[in-house]
Simulated assay, not measured.
Amino acid sequence: MQTHAGEDLIERILAHPADGDLVGSAANDLLSELYAGFPVENLARLLHSGDDRILPTATWLLSEIAELAAPLIDELPALLSSPIRSVRYDAIAVALENADEQHGPIVAQVMDLSRDPDSAVRWKVLEFLAEASVEQLEAGAACLPPGQVKELAEWLILQDDEEPDLAGIVIRLEAGDPVTRLFAAAAAASLSHKEDTNLLEHAAMVEEEEIRSFAQERLSELREDDSGNVDSF
């Protein structure tokens, strides 16, 4: 563990927040240091620098180190409510990797971002909803206030059943409002596989670009996986 190298990189980022090339290079080197054992707690200095030019870099680093970010999970509520789009976006990725049933309020906060005004953030919420465990979803739903998002979260959880509401998913994709369609698309992604892509194909035709692009990406992944697993003789 090269502690001094990591500390020097943090100092470099703090001292030159306006130099995009320098910060980007230092951030990549710092990422390597974090993987090598530099304590993630040191990123708190960047998170609390008070400089909005540094916060996106700090949050990106957290999103890149996956479960290694766990010691700083208490930073997520502030990051998820940041006015900076990229900070909210990357904080959702951190939540997916690190928030469990003990972090219901954090998961609920992510779910509530399904109404975020930014389409990129909504895309990331959709990814979270499609990939989160049932335990994560249940913890978040339990912490949501009564209303549309809570009802949709509870409905999404019910789709992890032997008899999911396939017709209901299609109806919500075709006739629902944008938030409803987002949750329905998450259900479609969770239930789709290479033998049956019907639900994702419905999601790929909705009005919202973030849902269409997400569904199209998942369809491409399924097709690539299928083509890569052709039997050979």
Rank of each mutant, 00 (worst) to 15 (best):
V134Q: 08
L129H: 07
H103Q: 12
A108R: 12
D116H: 13
S133E: 03
L152F: 06
N98K: 01
D160P: 00
P145W: 07
D116Q: 11
V121I: 12
R122F: 09
A99S: 07
L158F: 06
E151M: 06
E162D: 15
E97A: 11
G147N: 09
S119A: 15
A130C: 11
G147T: 01
D100K: 04
D161K: 07
Q136Y: 05
E151W: 04
A120Y: 11
E154F: 05
P117T: 14
A167F: 09
V125R: 06
N98F: 02
G147H: 11
G168D: 07
S114K: 12
E127L: 09
L96N: 01
L166W: 10
H103A: 00
S119M: 10
G104I: 02
V149C: 11
F128P: 08
P145Q: 10
Q159M: 14
L126M: 11
Q148G: 04
D177Y: 05
P145K: 13
R122A: 11
E101D: 13
N98H: 01
Q136C: 02
L158H: 10
V134C: 07
A99N: 09
G168Q: 09
L113W: 03
A153M: 07
I171W: 08
A141K: 13
D160F: 07
F128D: 11
G104L: 08
V110E: 02
M111R: 11
G147C: 10
L126C: 13
D118T: 13
Q102H: 14
A141C: 09
P105R: 14
